[in-house]
Design a binder for these strands. Structure first.
Length: 892
DNA sequence: ACCGCCGGGTGCC
DNA sequence: ACCGCCGGGTGCC
């Protein structure tokens, strides 16, 4: 009897207390999934760098004590339970939803505990046969980790007389898949347009007529919020819902995503569409509020400054109680588009979506960067009918109203990521914004939260809301990891838990697995709408842009310039032809580059030639000299804006370092190569030996004294003259036309300042060295139509990255050809974009009979290649074509 | 028999 | 668990 009682107590402990769980009111499963989330974060941070050591068969025991169910082939997670009172080595097995299935058998648990606790490997489980009896089942465990830990793991396993089945040993075709991956990535968000999307008119409260693509977006967004349909990777199997990616099933209908990612290009009207959504889709497709003509014009006049806005809106909230809100709730509002499309929503779906509605949730929270806060206010003012009473509260500034009832009773609350996360950290998670039950949270410029470790991201994840939206023009910036946070915010089950994202998506994709990529594409597609300015709706362009035309202006050098140029050219040809004959072009890449840069500089202006172009080919003696030379080369490669790409990541070089063989890479990229290959590490470009200790960084000091020298001994050049005469002609014809003057050489921009000043042009300058804040100022100044604002912007080719808007300019002068034609296109796109009213004319200055002409030829070839084959070339092919390029440039 | 064998009770960590 | 293990009952052929 006593024994029986004791067992009963034990059972209770096992259920609730035994694994360190508490009697807190959370359901056990929730606690478990939190436990899962909490573990393995260190290794999960780099899930894509692991290799498979092998796998072994083990067993899961104690099934009958737990409710977690699994299917044949289902993935399970393994969670250490160091606090387990029966065995400190305990390893719990849980299914995809975090429900416990059982434990790993004791003897095996000792091994796993050792491996897991020492971070030697990540252990992943799959149940090959599912549940075959009520007591135990098989599990296949696979071990993933860093190559350097392989031995230790194998030793651990064999010493405990388990047998490690070697996994597929395919030493991954890493570099090859990288190129493919990059292409797949670039296309990940393309072609997401679904022709089946209907159009939906905005409610009357929106006074701006929507463009067709905006009506589509509105229709899509409403459907995302109201349709109960599950993503296609769920299948209904009898009573159960089956996930075809993880092979898991649940009895309860998975909580679907009510929202998504609106990833339209900048300028397509994401803000307007979102405003229309907020007004149109309150509870279950009903509108939020409609024009109320008998109410006196309410203070929606936002042509006041922000401060006034706050005041007037606060007033509104207090004075007028929420008539429209009540009307909307009781369905009395007229003018709403009464659902003709009712048949689209099945009764079951309708019921299930209604049951999840929280009637207390009514406000939409908009979170955006401070810089676009005023844009929201402007757009509300512009697009919402003045007689519509909309309670909008700007939750910003030290006097902000933190009362949660007040906030809950708004229609919209606007705030910034900074305010949100500051509140969050101060209040320890119980901030006013975290207490309100929101109807909808919208993250504007949502890519801001792509790093899950930031306070902002954590704060955003903790918001309590029914519906979730991410607005962004750049859904992926450079890493697949960036996407996880978006998925997590949307709560796209089960991938909001890092392990399943890593196992099903991230690792397969980064290791070049085809189905992984398909799964990713499918996943993205089911929550994303993206159109670019070149997308088409029903065969017609989304928006029509003014024409753009390119003309090449040939520049003749003066006799003196020609002589200097030819001298340098002959010298360079001798050196390079020697390298070509020796087959050492790549080994001497920096020298070759220096020669080419020098020639290109001659084409622009002799003043561009710094002291850095001397003594090529001289063997350095002392380490200090070598270092000095390497830094000079690095400066050449980078400072001239030749837009080098890193041969490891194939992206523009970030955090540049130069190897002793004078090749430039991103520091993290090359460090990874050295780390994984250890002593055998070789330069990916020339296969020369490389060491971590020999990587040279760019020193931060910059020489300024030369600048003055440049100005004192001023002389012009043919290209400068060509530009100046174009600009002067333009000004005399139409002094309202603004121009971008673009060069890869920032020094050239400095040189150009002199004649511009002399001729009395007002200009601004934007280059890569400027702070983010200063850039924004300059752009604003240039874009402003105030009298006396600058006519010209001097722009360095690489400055600003994508996304900046220079639509005030309609003329572009490309002073020197770029290696990469895409860089030029991108630059031109900064003014040839939405908002451009005039036709855009692009002038490329090319010096006749020079290296520049050859560069243009190569550019054309590259363009052809891209158009033909989408350019899936691996680095070795790239190398050969690079040599060919150099030979073509030097006419060798 | 300080064994073997039988068969019931029992069962994660 | 249609197992293994434990421990009590039992005991020539």
């Amino acid at each position: 009897m006593q024994k029986g009682l004791y067992k009963y107590i034990l059972l209770i402990q096992r259920w609730f207390g035994g694994a360190g769980f508490s009697f807190a009111d959370d359901p056990v499963t929730e606690t478990l999934s939190q436990a899962i989330r909490g573990t393995g974060e260190e290794l999960d941070r780099e899930p894509d760098t692991g290799v498979l050591f092998g796998s072994l068969r083990g067993s899961v025991v104690g099934l009958r004590y737990y409710t977690g169910v699994v299917n044949k082939g289902e993935m399970v997670s393994l969670v250490r339970q160091p606090q387990n009172p029966y065995d400190r080595n305990a390893v719990m097995v849980a299914n995809v939803y975090g429900s416990q299935v059982g434990h790993i058998k004791r003897e095996l648990a000792v091994l796993l505990a050792n491996i897991m606790d020492n971070n030697l490997a990540r252990v992943e489980g799959v149940v090959p046969f599912g549940v075959t009896n009520q007591f135990t089942m098989s599990v296949v465990l696979s071990f993933w980790g860093r190559e350097e830990n392989r031995d230790a793991v194998v030793r651990q396993i064999t010493s405990r007389s388990f047998k490690l089945q070697s996994g597929p040993t395919g030493t991954h075709t890493h570099t090859h898949t990288l190129t493919q991956l990059k292409n797949a990535f670039d296309n990940l968000f393309e072609n997401l347009m679904d022709d089946k999307i209907g159009e939906r008119e905005a409610v009357e409260a929106v006074c701006t007529p929507l463009l067709p693509h905006q009506k589509q977006a509105l229709s899509w967004m409403c459907a995302c919020e109201n349709n109960a349909a599950l993503p296609h990777f769920w299948e209904v199997k009898g009573e159960l819902f089956y996930n075809t990616l993880t092979h898991s099933s649940v009895r309860e209908r998975p909580r679907r995503v009510r929202g998504g990612i609106l990833a339209d290009d900048m300028g397509l009207g994401k803000t307007l569409t979102t405003i229309a959504l907020i007004l149109s889709n309150f509870h279950h497709g009903k509108p939020l509020c409609e024009p109320v003509s008998n109410l006196k014009q309410f203070a929606c006049n936002t042509r006041l400054c922000m401060q006034n806005w706050v005041v007037c809106v606060c007033l509104g909230g207090a004075v007028l109680e929420d008539l429209d809100f009540a009307a909307a709730l009781s369905g009395l509002t007229q003018g709403a588009p009464q659902k003709k499309s009712k048949s689209l929503v099945s009764p079951v779906e309708a019921a299930s979506s209604q049951s999840t509605d929280d009637p207390a949730a009514r406000a939409t929270l908009i979170i955006c960067p401070l810089s676009v806060l005023s844009n929201w206010l402007d757009q509300l003012d512009q697009h919402v009918r003045a007689d519509v009473k909309l309670n909008v509260y700007l939750y910003y500034g030290s006097e902000r109203n933190r009362d949660t009832h007040f906030l809950s009773s708004q229609h919209m609350v606007l705030t910034t990521y900074n305010v949100l996360s500051a509140d969050y950290s101060v209040s320890g998670g119980a901030s006013p914004l975290h207490t309100v039950r929101w109807l909808r949270v919208v993250l504007d410029e949502g890519h801001i939260i792509r790093n899950p470790n930031t306070q902002q991201s954590k704060a955003v994840l903790k918001l309590n809301t029914q519906r979730r939206w991410i607005l962004t023009g750049t859904p992926i910036q450079n890493n697949l990891r960036d996407l996880w946070m978006l998925v997590a915010f949307l709560r796209l089950k089960p991938f909001d838990v890092r392990e399943w994202w890593n196992r099903v998506i991230q690792r397969p994709v980064t290791q070049g697995d085809k189905t992984g990529l398909q799964n990713l594409q499918a996943l993205v597609k089911c929550v994303t709408l993206r159109r670019t300015k070149t997308s088409r709706v029903c065969g017609r362009p989304l928006v029509s842009l003014p024409e753009r035309s390119v003309r090449i202006e040939e520049v003749e050098l003066t006799q003196k310039e020609r002589e200097e140029y030819e001298l340098a050219r002959t010298e360079g040809r001798t050196t390079i032809s020697r390298y070509v004959a020796e087959g050492t072009v790549l080994r001497n890449y920096a020298d070759v580059l220096a020669i080419l840069v020098r020639l290109r500089q001659f084409c622009c202006h002799p003043g561009l030639l710094g002291k850095t172009t001397t003594h090529t080919g001289v063997v350095a003696v002392t380490p200090a000299e070598l270092r000095e030379r390497l830094i000079m080369k690095l400066r050449l490669v980078l400072g001239t804006g030749s837009d080098e790409e890193c041969a490891v990541c194939l992206d523009s070089v970030r955090l540049p370092v130069i190897t002793h063989c004078a090749h430039v890479y991103c520091r993290p990229c090359i460090a990874e190569v050295i780390r994984s290959e250890q002593e055998q590490a070789r330069c990916p470009l020339c296969r020369g030996q490389i060491k971590a200790s020999e990587l040279v960084e760019f020193p931060l000091e910059e020489e300024e004294e030369e600048e003055s020298n440049l100005l004192e001994n001023w002389r012009s050049s043919s290209k400068v003259e060509a530009l100046m005469s174009s600009l002067l002609r333009l000004r005399s014809e139409d002094d309202s036309i603004r121009s971008l003057v673009v060069s890869q050489f920032t020094r050239f921009l400095t040189i150009l300042e002199i004649p511009l000043r002399e001729e009395g042009f007002k200009f601004v300058r934007l280059d890569g060295t400027m702070s983010q804040k200063r850039r924004a100022q300059v752009i604003q100044e240039f874009q402003s139509d105030a009298p006396g604002s600058p006519l010209i912007m001097l722009l360095s080719l690489k400055a600003g990255g994508v996304g900046i808007n220079l639509s005030a300019a309609s003329r572009v002068f490309l002073m020197d050809p770029a290696w990469n034609p895409a860089a030029e296109d991108q630059c031109v796109d900064r003014c040839h974009r939405l908002g451009q009213k005039r036709d855009v004319v692009i002038t490329k200055f090319i010096v006749k009979g020079s290296v520049e002409e050859n560069m243009v030829k190569i550019q054309r070839q590259k363009q052809d290649l891209v158009e033909k084959a989408f350019g899936t070339k691996n680095p070795s092919e790239r190398k050969t074509s690079r040599v060919d390029e150099i030979r073509a440039l030097m006419e060798l």
